[in-house]
């Protein structure tokens, strides 16, 4: 069942109810689409292992219920996730406006290092569009988050979105590693005493000889 992998990234999908979080995940994990709407109960997750620059990265993608009544359960999963996708529905103005609330929710509950991304789903339904792509981009710039319009039904940009988020997380990981080398540079000070040990008796004795 379990193949070997190099890293495990935990991702989270949030957004209002009915924006298509489950569909996006279903498209990404199974490459399929289900037209019927079944509200997610609480939480669910899917696994897919992707190849990122020669590294096997296992993505554990948590799908949350958009419904208010599951909020307590879903917020519990914010903290452990390394990447969060904020999904809104381009045919639903309200869901777009709520993105701000979702972002605030992330700031309250998720780790500060979390990578974020905004997805405008259902972009295939151009006739019913209420939120233009420009508005979405504007919002993304405002929050300095990456943005992409997707369609789970037409399999548009879904793959791209997940890969981008995973790559961003990986880049952050490398960056953290580099930052971590600074304290480890300080750690060499811990090793230094071994050098000092050798010196210590010398200085102590030499002082004695002076006396």
């Amino acid at each position: 069942m379990a193949k070997t992998y190099d890293c495990l990234f935990k991702l989270l999908l949030i957004g209002d109810s009915g924006v298509g979080k489950t569909s996006i995940l279903f498209r990404f994990s199974e490459d399929a689409f289900n037209i019927s709407f079944i509200s997610t109960i609480g939480i669910d997750f899917k696994i897919r292992t992707i190849d990122l620059d020669g590294k096997k990265v296992k993505l554990q993608i948590w799908d949350t219920a958009g419904q208010e009544r599951f909020r307590t359960i879903t917020t519990a999963y914010y903290r452990g996730s390394m990447g969060i996708m904020l999904v809104y529905d381009v045919t639903n103005e309200k869901s777009f406006e709520n993105i701000k609330n979702w972002i605030r929710n992330i700031e309250e509950n998720a780790s500060a290092d979390v990578e974020k991304m905004i997805l405008g789903n259902k972009c295939d339904l151009d006739s019913q569009r209420q939120v233009s792509k420009e508005r979405g981009e504007q919002l993304a710039i405002e929050y300095q988050i990456k943005f992409v319009e997707t369609s789970a039904k037409d399999s548009l940009n879904v793959e791209y979105a997940f890969y981008t988020l995973a790559r961003d997380i990986k880049a952050k990981m490398e960056k953290k590693q580099k930052e971590a080398s600074n304290p480890s540079g300080g750690r060499s000070g811990v090793h230094k005493p071994t050098l000092n040990d050798a010196r210590k008796p010398v200085t102590w004795l030499s002082r004695c000889s002076v006396l």
Binding site: D6, C7, L8, M82, D113, M173, K176, Q177, A180, S184
Partner: peptide
């Protein structure tokens, strides 16, 4: 050893 420690730090998700 240091390389391995770093690798472990990365791979285990400890960096996060």
């Amino acid at each position: 050893l240091c390389a391995e420690t770093r690798e472990m730090w990365k791979k285990s998700g400890a960096w996060f």
